[in-house]
Design a protein around this nucleic acid. Sequence first.
DNA 1: CTGTTAGCGCCTTCAA
DNA 2: TTGAAGGCGCTAACAG
Lengths: 340, 340
Amino acid sequence: MARNAAKPITMAAIAREAGVARTTVSFVLNGRYRQHGISEKTAEKILAIAQRRNFVPNETARSLSRQRTGLVGVFLPGFNSHWGETVVRGIRARLFEDGDYIPLIASQHDDPDWEEREVRVLLERQVEAIVCCPTVKSSNYRRIVDRGVPLVFIGHRAQGISEASFVAWDGTHIAAEATRYLMSHGRKRIAFIGRDESKETFRERFNGYREALKEGGLSARRAWKKSVPDYSDAGPAIRSLFAQKAEPDAILCDLWIQALAAIEALDEIGRNIPEDVAVMALGDSPVCAHGRVGLTTVAEPAEHLGRRAAEIALQLIRSPSSVPVQELIRDYELRSRQTV
Amino acid sequence: MARNAAKPITMAAIAREAGVARTTVSFVLNGRYRQHGISEKTAEKILAIAQRRNFVPNETARSLSRQRTGLVGVFLPGFNSHWGETVVRGIRARLFEDGDYIPLIASQHDDPDWEEREVRVLLERQVEAIVCCPTVKSSNYRRIVDRGVPLVFIGHRAQGISEASFVAWDGTHIAAEATRYLMSHGRKRIAFIGRDESKETFRERFNGYREALKEGGLSARRAWKKSVPDYSDAGPAIRSLFAQKAEPDAILCDLWIQALAAIEALDEIGRNIPEDVAVMALGDSPVCAHGRVGLTTVAEPAEHLGRRAAEIALQLIRSPSSVPVQELIRDYELRSRQTV
DNA sequence: CTGTTAGCGCCTTCAA
DNA sequence: TTGAAGGCGCTAACAG
């Protein structure tokens, strides 16, 4: 059982015990004592005491004094996806390398009060920058920017905010690549399923798909473009696609989770994959690799995006006045499995 | 672009602007001004200024002054599982309700240096309690306890640390329940696959399985107990199980991810599920529900575990001297799908 | 080589 | 009803 916390030892106490000034202790414990000409002997004595008394520097006090907390706010939706975890891993790893910063992770949420509170908390805790998903409410976005806290969007570029930094996966490019892949496998009637037609991300990806089709001498039929807001239920969209006389011979999904739902729906209506119809998704997760599923995907380098976002955040912290950093990542990995 | 942060306004500045003392501002902004007999008028004036100047309290300063940070350290492996996310959601939700605390999330890691650093960071940031997985290295466990920081293990009870608080899913109970379920479906030759035979969690669950078998007049054959350290590859274990003359007619897996791998392996060696052999797992994830998989599971109330862990952490913060809280959660949800 | 002094922004006791 | 003063633990400019 936790024994009652004896009050943790402070630098002042160490100074007293060693018979030196607090400054000396501070310099020694921060390893900068040589530059201040403190004798090895004194240093050793201080280090010994610190060790013996199990000294742990109080980062709260240090933050207050230095006027910097070493905190980078991370604000992602729910954290419920493989994507989110992977991004966070990248951010954490990058900050870790830097040594001076750690992530303070908040979670976006449908409830506006929740989201507002999370932003308030990040601000009160004096995060030095924030990495967040463009799904953040614009009022919250403003609160961050107004405070002068550097902000980096991750995953997609933010809609209608041209002056913000971001690191995004190049939707147009990867949708085009996926479409080309399908065409190269002989598919000619390719449908596109995305989440929300009104979103910029949908449009970007749809455009990539359309351009690639055009390149290949095909064209995008309106009837083969579907948006599925409740992405776990692609059933209706699939059924309506296959109620048409000209059935698609391939389906390109915006999200792997939609593709999984599409596969279920296709199984139900008795279409064979990939013989009758190929299925492919933008984005990947371990599920897709399961032998029973074998979904062919274009995988997003999510960890890399996280790393870059962290890097940009650090850069903006160091020079807040610098121009926004906007990066479209075109890398992807085509994971060819059984559905194409 | 972030305009260069004008220095954020402080209480002192507000006091100056309002022509009152800092104390007054503090009382007003913390909503306790009535008890101190401060006039509504003064209060309004102060609130107006704060609003106009976009005042955000500096939680770092507040923490230092109050000698409490409102931080609860959360220390889970990798964060790479559905389980971890769900637990964190529970913790966050519970802390949110309480209002005064937020989680500071660190991540466990195979690399000992990494893990050690994470613990150091949590301690330096003065977290008031830590919720963590029992997989933490014992040296790090000691550092936490020695500092007097209350610790709550989550998921499993810690091995060989009888005096620590924990909230764990009752492995013996749920393994028994799962086994009973399999028996009630006519299965008589049930194999058990777990991750690491040397771990207490394996033993607990195995015991539950064995007891239930005994109850049902069956017995656990040594040859039907397998441990699969690399849990994403159950292939060898499955093949060796099905190389025996007496093939199992059911497989109970410690982890859903093992069960998924087992399904793949069974597909490969041409056994039909569930006709030849049933598959069932302890623990659930959305993947298991996919139509192509349909894995029957016993789902862990992971969010609830998170909530309880947070609750216990808060309680230990409030009365650090209290007896360790040890809770075995027996709840589960049987998700009957197609593999049984 | 070491110590003095003055903060960082907020809270809180005590006095007026 | 308000204000003065000291302190939380650490940093840093400046003397000596």
